[in-house]
Design a protein around this nucleic acid. Sequence first.
RNA 1: GCGGGAGUAGAUCAAUUGGUUAGAUCAACAGAUUGUGAUUCUGUGGGUUGCGGGUUCGAGUCCCGUCUCCUGCCCCA
Length: 409
Amino acid sequence: MAGGVSFEPPRGMRDFYPEDMVWRNRVFDAFRAAGEAAGFKPYDACVVENYDLLARKAGEEVGEQLYHFFDKSERHIALRAEMTPTLARMVAARQKELQFPLKWTTIAQCFRYERMTKGRKREHYQWNLDIIGEDSVLAEVEVIGAACDALRRMGLADSDYKVHVSSRKFLGELLAGSGISADKHAQVFLALDKRGKMPDSEIAAMLGDGGLSDAETEAAFAIMETKDCSASPELTEMFRLAEVAGFADRLVFDIGVIRGLSYYTGIVFECFDTAGEFRAVFGGGRYDNLLTTIGGEATSAVGLGFGDVVVTELLKARLGGETVAGRKGVAVGFMFPDQRDAALRLAAKLRSQGECVDLALREQKPKKFFSRAGSSCAAKAVFIGPDDVAKGSARIKDLSTGEETEVAL
RNA sequence: GCGGGAGUAGAUCAAUUGGUUAGAUCAACAGAUUGUGAUUCUGUGGGUUGCGGGUUCGAGUCCCGUCUCCUGCCCCA
């Protein structure tokens, strides 16, 4: 750290070297393709927002976790930690002219100032899918189906993950059925969401603090053992539609999925790797009051957030850590400066034919050229020497089979 | 925010209780090899041991601080 200057990226921020971009592109390509295949329209937005927009929606705790600063006119600005407030702002601004339901998608870089752990950085890319203005559970099915499609496009097996689904509405009804009044539900959700992370005794204490009697607390724990969702029409219908769509094998009812954010009102879901090795791959749910918080009209929506960090770790674990990029393109090299023009001419010709060509920038000995071409990701290589120029043709070698074919210079 | 572990060549790791010039294997580069890659042989370069201070005749090794990474907890995109 010479002179006190660090030459590392700031804590939690990421550099993407070419070998990292192989993975990132694999993930992003799957996001884009799956979004397009499911009819979602791409949109994008500024990375910075007014601090108040982000802080208001996210809640008091998260306000502390925002990267924020004052610009030169003392405007309070923050880097977005999630896309939902931005989406709400954009939709509300054109609410009168847009045709609902909307199906929008984006890959958004988001920032959050907090402690890092495995699968969690201070900066990440989050693929967002939102369907706005549709009450039918088909919206949930379409969103989850698209996410499953993306996982398949990345190369994961269907058996590598499970999407755990529940419903806050259903859970609320069960609680109400045990005599726990609706005004206590928010507190109960918060406490029950801690199951598995905190000992039951502490959760019971939280529930007691929330105003539940001992009997009600006991009832709440009993409800969390619920394995059957047939009493919930929306969940039943959702599983049926998933069956029709062909991905019901990856869904599982899990009353324990609650999600921390308070704005979810209906079905909620989280995707985990089957081995239980990683954090949630994606998550989301239905939130009915998105637009009202920023002055829009009440609109039901389903949203899904899918970060790039965890899924990339999962992919590397399941597909192998070695580069999975396929070979493609042609490497063109030459022996002496006299063959440089011929090499450039051939490169230009191949490129005009649609080939990807990596032209050597200086003369090389054949051994070195082929050695480097072989360890690069080129599929073919052609090396031009004096004899080739004299003859007017060169040999293009397939680097995996060793086969050679003539090509005119 | 709290706790634990770790930082030595580009990479993975050695280095006796604190003791000579910090080594090895890969990788890179060069040569054997002036016309076609992964073998082989030979050679070369590469380090302020994360950074700063302290103890000592002497510190990669011990102490303090700091930075970074990993790993639990808290929290959640």
